[in-house]
Computed example of a mutant assay.
Amino acid sequence: MSDERTLIFEQNRHTLEGIAYRMLGELSGALDIVQETYLKWCEIDVSTVHSPRAWLITVCSRIALNQLKSARVRRELYVGEWLPEPLPDQLNQDPRVQLELDDTVSVALLLALERLSPSERAAFLLHDVFNLSFNEIANILGKSNANCRQLATRARKHIREHRPRFQTTPEEHQTLLEAFISAARQGELDRLVTLLANQVELYSDGGGQVEALPSILCGAEKVAKFFVSVFGRYQRNAIAIQTLWLRFNGSSGLLIYENGQLATALTIDVHAGHIYRLYAVRNPDKLSNLPAEM
């Protein structure tokens, strides 16, 4: 029974990790939730469970919901801008499935989800992303079917209002990011400005542990000057910069290493041939699941 119990859990692990990560926006926290779910799974008589998958999703979702409520309190005290912890991609062989997966872990969506109440977030994710029925969601949340429908409807409305819909291709995305980092390293201010949308936004998350912008920086000229300044300082201080391409949160990103040590995970949102948003994760705690050294 022990081997069968473990097999059942492993067959559902990917789904559980997906739910926990999208609920929290934290990879480390998500893995802790999945581990706690496994420990609870080991404590029950599996033979009495009608649907192991439903049981696992229910327990995992409830734990994630409790963790999210605690996380929201911590984020109110967070130093600077909060960004989700980078999630390295697990590629799917079906391009259509991959596109859907990419969209549900994008930084833009995860930031929009932060504006929802925990119950709204859970109802939206469980129904729209993981295809649970509202009867199943009602059981998880301890609410009525009608209430859960209302929660999901409100969530969709908020997401439409606060989540920009960026239209691009993976090739255009990577080309623009390559051009941007090249111009930044060369100090080409005018070139940087042409790559950026006029109202571009730069989000930088240091978590109060390392240097980062205290708030969102807006405008092509300001963002371009900021990056020219940063890479100019690298040169003046003889800091060796190396980069490594890595897909995370559904699109190509760059890991930036300072003297061989991972310092920043950078990715962008692209629309109409320009960079509309840049996300720079510098909080060391959020980089711990990425390659630490070059």
Rank of each mutant, 00 (worst) to 15 (best):
V228N: 10
E293V: 11
S288N: 09
Y276M: 12
L27F: 00
T264E: 13
L39W: 08
N283C: 12
L255Q: 05
L244N: 11
L56V: 09
E4L: 10
T267C: 11
R115C: 13
F134T: 12
L196R: 01
F180I: 02
A108N: 09
M1V: 08
Y279S: 12
V49I: 15
L141H: 02
Y21F: 15
A272F: 05
R74Y: 01
L83K: 05
F134E: 12
Q167A: 07
R115F: 12
A122H: 10
Y21C: 09
I33A: 09
L151D: 03
L151M: 11
A123S: 14
L192I: 05
Q242P: 03
A20C: 12
T194L: 10
Q209V: 14
Q93D: 03
Q90F: 03
R75S: 00
T168V: 09
T267R: 14
T264Y: 03
L217A: 06
T15K: 14
V223H: 03
S117I: 07
V34W: 00
L110M: 14
N131S: 15
R160W: 10
C148P: 06
N92L: 14
L111G: 00
N135D: 14
V281M: 12
W245H: 12
Q11D: 10
F130K: 04
L196Y: 00
L278E: 05
W55P: 00
N289V: 07
A197I: 07
R22P: 04
V230Q: 09
V73N: 05
A265K: 09
R277Y: 09
Q174S: 11
N249K: 07
I241H: 10
M1A: 14
P52G: 02
N131Y: 13
L68A: 02
S215I: 01
T243C: 13
G207R: 00
A184M: 06
G232D: 15
L16E: 01
L255S: 03
G80T: 04
A112K: 08
T104G: 00
F231G: 03
K143H: 13
G208T: 04
S204F: 02
L56G: 08
L195C: 06
R149F: 11
E120N: 13
L189A: 09
P170S: 12
S119W: 11
P95C: 05
V230W: 06
L91N: 01
L125G: 10
I268A: 08
D190S: 15
A138M: 11
V193P: 01
A212D: 03
A272N: 13
Y279P: 13
G25N: 09
Q174K: 13
P95Q: 03
V107P: 00
S204Q: 15
E201N: 04
T6D: 13
W245S: 13
F227S: 05
G260V: 07
A263Y: 09
R96Y: 12
H162R: 06
H173V: 01
A183V: 01
Y78M: 00
W41V: 08
N135G: 15
L266C: 11
Q209Y: 13
N249D: 15
E136R: 08
S288V: 14
L99K: 14
Q174N: 07
I63P: 05
G219L: 06
S133I: 06
N249Y: 07
A112L: 11
L56I: 10
L99R: 14
L217E: 08
L195N: 02
G253Q: 09
V105R: 14
E172A: 11
Q98F: 01
L141Q: 01
F124P: 02
V281L: 15
